[in-house]
């Protein structure tokens, strides 16, 4: 149990996918203007990332590795991720129209979120087993959601702050992202045992 907790904490905070590994920066800067949109994007990504890490693990173990097809890894992972996103969207529209209303426009965007592909590839690199791959995906997604919500909250306040004209808009957002990333470096001193 404690191992599971350590894995989740370390992927969500110490090796945060956005602020430490610098993956998935496009939605991080693009969909962080409003808090509720950011949380919606985070939840949709959590769903897809966990599903995609499981699916890509199965693909790697049962197809790519036995047949020595390592060079097809990226293209086949992208195929699986795109199909997973599409499937999730179809199922969501049928079974939970409310959730589809909230997440609808963000779901297709996740196909091109490099954090999803990145986590799947890192899983292969680390040679994790199925449970670890799943937890790694879940932890990374939780970290992504956390950072999205934090950054959106900061940016909502920045809208009201007196920012010098040359820094307003994108520049101050990038500086804020940099400061957040510095703050997350502090977690590397966290003792998880």
């Amino acid at each position: 149990m404690s191992e599971v907790l350590i894995l989740l904490l370390s992927t969500a905070l110490v090796n945060n996918v956005v602020l430490v590994k610098f993956l998935g920066l496009c939605p991080f800067l693009g969909v962080s203007r409003k808090l509720d949109a950011a949380i919606g994007m985070g939840l949709a990504t959590t769903f897809v990332l966990t599903l995609a890490s499981a699916a890509s693990w199965m693909l790697e173990q049962w197809l790519l590795e036995p047949f020595g097809l390592g060079y097809l890894r990226i293209v086949s992972f992208i195929l699986v991720i795109a199909a997973a996103v599409q499937f999730v969207e179809l199922a969501m529209r049928k079974f939970s129209p409310e959730l589809h209303q909230v997440l609808g426009i963000y779901l297709p965007l996740i196909t091109t979120n490099c954090a999803v592909l990145g986590v799947a590839l890192l899983n292969v690199q680390q040679g994790s087993d199925f449970l670890h791959a799943l937890l790694y995906g879940l932890g990374s997604a939780a970290g992504f959601t956390l950072v999205m919500a934090m950054f959106a909250g900061v940016r909502e306040r920045l809208e009201l702050a007196a920012v010098p004209a040359s820094f307003s808009g994108a520049p101050i957002a990038l500086i804020t992202a940099g400061l957040l990333s510095l703050a997350f470096m502090g977690f590397s001193g966290l003792r998880l045992d």
Binding site: L59, Y71, L79, F87
Partner: peptide, 17 residues
């Protein structure tokens, strides 16, 4: 085997979708 497996994956995913 590369061509076959990619075709197979794509066909299966397409069918599922």
């Amino acid at each position: 085997i590369a061509v076959t497996s990619l075709t197979l994956i794509a066909t299966c995913l397409g069918l599922i979708l």
